[in-house]
Computed example of a mutant assay.
Amino acid sequence: MTIGIIGSGGLGSNVARALAKKGITATISTRRGPASLAPLISELGPFINAGTTEEAASADVVLVAVRWIDLGEALSNLPAWNGRIVIDGTNPVEFLKPDSPDMNDTSNPLAAYGIKAIDLGGKYSSEVFCEFVPGARVVKALNHLDVNVLAQPDVSGGQRVQFYSGDDAAAKAKVRKILEAIGYFPVDLGSLAVGGRLAELPFGSLAATNFVKI
Rank of each mutant, 00 (worst) to 15 (best):
M1H: 12
L110A: 02
R31E: 05
G122K: 04
I115R: 06
P153L: 05
K174A: 14
A57D: 04
L78E: 01
E131D: 14
L11T: 13
E73F: 11
E200F: 01
I85L: 05
T25W: 01
I48M: 13
K172I: 11
I118F: 12
A141N: 08
A171I: 12
W68M: 09
N104F: 12
L40K: 10
S156M: 11
L150W: 08
I3W: 02
G114F: 13
P39H: 11
V66G: 14
G4K: 02
Y164S: 13
L78K: 08
I5M: 02
G183T: 07
Q162N: 13
V62L: 08
L145Q: 15
H144E: 10
G33E: 13
K213L: 00
G114E: 10
N104A: 12
G135F: 11
G89S: 05
A117E: 13
Y124K: 04
E55H: 01
N210M: 08
Q159M: 08
P134K: 10
V15T: 15
T209Y: 04
G9F: 00
D154F: 08
T52W: 00
L120G: 03
L44N: 00
L110R: 02
W81D: 05
S156T: 03
K21G: 01
E43R: 06
K140G: 07
S165C: 11
D168W: 12
L78S: 10
L201C: 03
N143G: 13
I115K: 01
K116D: 00
A112R: 13
A173H: 13
E94P: 00
A208V: 07
I87Q: 02
L192G: 04
A50Q: 03
R176A: 11
D188N: 14
F95W: 07
L63S: 04
L78W: 06
Y124S: 06
I178C: 08
D188Q: 14
P186T: 04
G190F: 05
Q159E: 08
G135V: 12
E73P: 00
A26P: 05
A38N: 11
D70A: 15
L120A: 08
S42C: 04
A208C: 10
S29K: 01
I41Y: 14
I115Q: 01
S76Q: 15
L179W: 08
M1I: 08
P202Q: 09
V187M: 14
L19N: 06
L75V: 05
R32K: 14
G204F: 03
W68P: 05
E43N: 06
G51F: 05
S13R: 09
D99P: 06
G157M: 13
D99C: 09
L71H: 00
V187T: 09
K213N: 09
L37G: 07
K213F: 12
N143S: 12
G190A: 07
G157C: 13
Q152W: 12
S8A: 14
G114P: 14
A199T: 14
L198P: 03
V62H: 03
